[in-house]
Nucleic acid binder design. Structure first.
Lengths: 120, 120
DNA sequence: CAAGCCAACTAGGTTAACTATGTTGGTGAA
DNA sequence: TTCACCAACATAGTTAACCTAGTTGGCTTG
């Protein structure tokens, strides 16, 4: 609900969601409520919710899938998180992974000559 | 200048600043250029610069002081024992990143899939 | 000269609007 | 039934605008 403490709203929401994930209230694999729902739930604007989710996404706690939702990531292993450098590398690998998957799919669809649907 | 690779601008700027910090181009204790200056330098909007700086702030690489500026955090980083491994991973990620970016660009430019989607 | 005010900077937070892109389900036509 | 299209909804990225608040230096005033 974003109390009026000194802590900014987007951090409060991020904290709350993080706690729910760590506490098991939001199990791995399950989707978070949509941005709009969270905004209403916390009585915040869409922007701050997006920022909060962005933080968790950056932390690797959740994975956003465009068009579907934001899902709690499976397998959370905290051990070597000593360095933020490791966290950074993890984020980089995650990023590369997503991009690679995209490229691979693009290659697959173009080579199998599947009739593509034209968006928009 | 925020190239047109798949990577969003705020991450590109964050990466660049992070590299400058780690590379020593931005020494500990020195201030980053102001938000406005960075925005002009990268030819980006103030918003994306603020997002980029926010990431670094979140990572603990820099410390923002309201009214003064954003300063590179004093070293104080206990060099991880397995420096070699981290360095190696970093190099690998860097290499993959470059190669992936190349492939992505190739796909983006060469495959204007039939059935439209001509934009870009 | 010294105190205090003020204007101009700074970072930080919030909101709204727009675009792009992906997913999904329903509808209607062949 | 099956396919094509479309509307609705989702995340993601970007931009612009406005506000708060801290810092600094110059200027005015006592």
């Amino acid at each position: 609900m974003v109390k009026n403490t000194g802590r900014p709203g987007y951090l409060q929401i991020a904290d709350d969601l993080r706690a729910q994930i760590r506490g098991g209230s939001l199990a791995p694999g399950t989707p978070l409520p949509s941005t709009a729902q969270l905004a209403e739930q916390y009585d915040a604007s869409l922007s701050v919710v997006k920022m909060a989710v962005g933080i968790l996404r950056n932390e690797g706690l959740v994975i956003g899938q465009q068009g579907k939702g934001v899902f709690v990531r499976e397998a959370e292993e905290p051990p070597p998180a000593r360095d933020d450098e490791v966290a950074e590398l993890r984020a980089a690998v995650q990023d590369l992974s997503v991009r690679l998957a995209k490229v691979e799919e693009q290659l697959a669809t173009s080579t199998t000559r599947r009739s593509g649907r034209s968006s928009r």
